[in-house]
Design a protein around this nucleic acid. Sequence first.
DNA 1: CAAAACGAATTACAAGCGTAATCTTTTGCT
DNA 2: AGCAAAAGATTACGCTTGTAATTCGTTTTG
Lengths: 130, 130
Amino acid sequence: MIRISEAESRVMQVLWQHAPLDAEAIIRALAEHNDWHEKTVKTLLNRLLRKGAIHAERDGRRYLYSPLLERDDWQAEESRNLLERAFDGRLAPMLAHFTRHEKLDEQDLRELRRLVEAIERQHDDDKESP
Amino acid sequence: MIRISEAESRVMQVLWQHAPLDAEAIIRALAEHNDWHEKTVKTLLNRLLRKGAIHAERDGRRYLYSPLLERDDWQAEESRNLLERAFDGRLAPMLAHFTRHEKLDEQDLRELRRLVEAIERQHDDDKESP
DNA sequence: CAAAACGAATTACAAGCGTAATCTTTTGCT
DNA sequence: AGCAAAAGATTACGCTTGTAATTCGTTTTG
């Protein structure tokens, strides 16, 4: 399982949004919010390459980079990690925590309801086909 | 804001459950699940001390350690961090993610329902007293 | 063609981390 | 009193990370 660092993940975010991109485009995209030197981004790209998190394909004198590690998988990995590390792997306390500490909007609410329904359905299925 | 590492957080977990404890008790508690040398745990305790995450009080020839950093605050910190890093700070996608990737049990379900109700009430309040 | 410019690859370097080993101080025991 | 055992303090060491700078190879350009 590929582990990427905080800074590396910023680079991935860019690639997850549009890919393939060449180094210059990535640097530009990152310059807006982070404040990294061009060389820094190049280093991160290299490390991501070595880790197998991205792929580089030659295009003339430059490379085009694309993600290999999938965003969804990475999110799953990171979420699971937090769950284990901080909440003993139990989701309920984590959810409770979010209720207490984050302000939720309409969309969050809709998402929560869908969650509840999904679980109910899932539990019903379990009963029907044992 | 105090930043503690993965390994350090294991030590904190022990102290959050029972404190104060002396080094030996902490080492014993950790030996069960991790597989750390006594010296390793001592190092971690020292680092936590320097970071101000715990407090040590002399008791005869040894120290009794207690947490200073609160568990709830740490959880909040870590959760927020994940939310920002991995989900652009938006809760809904994160919740959706959990639906798709984690198996939820009865207790999670109850917790979720309570959550939904709490939020609905909260939203109603907003409407009534603008 | 020689030099400059650009992109990529290699190297740098301090701080943090995981994982201890060694050193120092205190103290209980003979 | 002298020494071994125990607890804590200091030091170690290789790896990762954040943050670049330097070097190398290839084009482009005067």
